[in-house]
Amino acid sequence: MVNQTGHTDHGDVIQPARDSNHYGDRITQNYYGSTPGPDDQSIDEESAESSSASGSAAALGGSGLGLLAFFGLLGYFIFGGDEPFPTQSDPWPVGVERVAVIAAAGSWFEKCQKSESASPINCPQSLIETSGKVSKAHWAFYGSYLEAPVIQYSEGESRFDMLGTVVVSADYTVSKKARRVVTPMKYWAKVNWIDGQLEVQEIKEHSAVGDPEVVKVEPRQPWGPVETRLKNEFDRCLRGATSAMPAGCPDWQLPADAKKVKWSLTEDPLLTARASFDSKFGVFRVKGTYGVAVDYTSRDSMRSEVRNTNYEALVTTSEAGPVVLQIKDLV
């Protein structure tokens, strides 16, 4: 659940169709990330043939699975929280393939993404807004959220349980002011097997002790387009800044009576920036340093502030190129 409290009027916080970027032979420049080999290209095909595959979870022996289940149940009963995800699978029904279960969950994600509700039922996303009523909620899912899920089948429940990760972006308005929340989360999709049909019961946010790992493959993403998109995003943050920067930008708010505000960059945010891939959530985390100066009038006096701060930007890939989801200050 996204829990947004204590934000500025224009601020935002990180709580947080499948996106991918296929450049193929068109890549002619250096890139960061691992280069996929022939074996990597056959991962999906091999997974589709497995009737009881478990995604990219680390291989564990019987004793390891037992320990995970034990500690998961122990944490559940002692500390509360979410019920543990199943650590073992019964034999799958004949004819059901992994890709079909994933496709069923993907169709439900599309429905959840279309909702304008702040907390659509049977969906993983939710907003809690304490400063007013949420309106015009626009949801988007990133992080290759259908990649490498762990899938188990329960014969007694006639249900497939699918554990994956997603980065949820929410753009909405409160009191006519735009806001954005970006939330990386694990999800649990429950897909019933009824009369030979796959029917999604729900997809919910999930976190529990002993959950199997979800590990995603680093996409082949050149640095140049990321650098350009990130520079454009910083320009947007300054160009749209008034007494605070726009949604999705660093949280820096001036006094409420600030007037004649002028923002300017004093240090190139790409100068020492470097990216690393978050294999759990399927996004790049770019870390760097930016410098900003702002001049404004408050209480009939001219004032100036300068900030040199380290930042982290969440960047995902898409068919149209890199997408900067959010820039936040590092503390």
Rank of each mutant, 00 (worst) to 15 (best):
I203E: 02
W223D: 09
A273S: 11
P255I: 02
E312V: 12
P91Q: 11
P219W: 05
E319Y: 10
S304H: 13
A170K: 05
V99G: 07
G72Y: 01
N192M: 07
A273V: 05
P255N: 05
L314K: 06
P84D: 04
Q41P: 09
R179T: 01
A241S: 04
R285P: 03
W263I: 02
P16K: 09
Q29C: 15
S318Y: 06
W92K: 13
G80A: 05
V315D: 00
G24Q: 08
I128W: 14
E233I: 00
R274C: 12
R98N: 15
P86L: 02
V94N: 13
G164M: 07
F281R: 04
Y32I: 14
S56V: 04
I14Y: 11
G95L: 08
P36T: 05
S47D: 13
A320P: 00
N122L: 15
E157S: 10
P86I: 02
E205L: 14
G248F: 00
V294M: 01
G33A: 12
F79L: 13
S34T: 14
D40G: 09
L67T: 10
P36G: 06
A293H: 07
V13C: 08
R299E: 15
T272E: 09
R307A: 13
Y142D: 14
P120W: 04
S126K: 14
Y23C: 08
G224V: 13
A178E: 05
Y296F: 14
D329F: 05
G81E: 11
C123Q: 01
P38C: 14
A48F: 12
I43A: 15
V101I: 08
P222Y: 03
V166A: 04
V168C: 12
T8C: 05
R98A: 15
S20P: 05
V215D: 12
R239D: 04
E218P: 03
S115Y: 09
E218G: 04
I151S: 01
D9A: 11
P269Q: 00
H138N: 11
Q4R: 12
D25C: 05
T5C: 08
L230M: 02
Y145G: 08
T87A: 09
V209T: 13
E233N: 01
N310E: 10
D329Y: 06
V168W: 03
R239V: 04
V150K: 01
K190D: 06
T228N: 07
P222T: 00
F70G: 07
S298Y: 07
E213K: 11
V331E: 13
S318E: 03
A69L: 12
T165P: 02
V323Q: 03
P184D: 11
V167G: 02
L270T: 02
S63K: 08
A293F: 06
Y172V: 00
I327M: 01
Y296V: 08
R229P: 02
